[in-house]
Design a protein around this nucleic acid. Structure first.
Lengths: 141, 141
DNA sequence: CCATTCTTGACTAAATAGGTCAACAAATAT
DNA sequence: ATATTTGTTGACCTATTTAGTCAAGAATGG
């Protein structure tokens, strides 16, 4: 099993929700949480972090909430995941273990496979914009 | 970050070690553990589980140990990982979360992306046989 | 000034990965 | 035989990480 963290999932879903409302003013955390079935307190933390990415911004007060800073076709899943994953060595985003803890110093027969995997995975992430996701959702209804 | 479990890593490494010794009789758990830097008690458990896969078998006693039941070019990384991952729904080996816990019952805009990812990842796993890994290792020396 | 909403860091809970152990069973050596 | 080596198995432990909560405070708009 390979599974992304819930936190990353929630970040993607929150972004999708904001993409839906793109251009319609701020969306409240509580609305995003309800729409995407995300624990609200946790979402507060996640959105707050996401602000540093430059993809979203927020406004306080009565008509406050979060909103996208770019159109949905200019943000990809890869962008968001890379940000959520921090400054991890790009070559190790998908791998056996972090370079430090590898007893073979990441010089083993499996390395080429992990490299391939890394590229294949992020190629797909990078090819998926939030506009693409919106289109998929629309086609479903 | 997407990272395979240590247990799966250890299984792959143990198999690689057995591939190296393929045709040379049984290899002791302790030797595999030493060669591949795997905690021996943990490796006992892993190899024991691997027997059920049909890729390896074991022999007890003085000249005992583990050995492959097929030549290294007839076992792939995909084979081993699929086995270690159990009877997980194939479509969810790489995904956001298990079908049960998905609040949208796995019917959301992200599904096509996870499906693509799943296929891409296992394509690479399935294309990598232990003979391939041995060849890589030989080329390195 | 009041209601609403985001902000932030500290905190806690729960899950699971990762690892350990010990008593036992089988094979071989002598 | 029997001592030694080696695999078998299920129960057990625990450190880490993920996941989630909270509360006091700071903007914002009415």
């Amino acid at each position: 099993m390979i599974r992304t963290h819930k936190k990353e999932q929630y970040a993607l879903r929150a972004m999708l929700e904001l993409a839906k409302k793109s251009g319609k003013g701020p969306t409240k955390i509580s609305d995003i949480a309800a729409a995407q079935a995300i624990p609200i307190r946790f979402l507060e933390v996640i959105l707050s972090q996401l602000k540093a990415s430059g993809f979203v911004d927020s406004k306080r007060g009565f008509y406050g909430g979060y909103y996208l800073l770019r159109p949905p076709d200019q943000i990809t899943v890869g962008d968001v995941l890379r940000f959520m994953q921090g400054d991890e060595d790009p070559a190790h985003r998908v791998s056996c273990m972090s370079k430090k803890e590898c007893p073979f110093n990441c010089d083993c027969a499996f390395v080429p496979m992990w490299t391939k995997l890394n590229k294949a995975v992020f190629k797909i992430y990078d090819e998926t914009s939030f506009q693409d996701l919106l289109n998929i959702e629309r086609r479903r209804h």
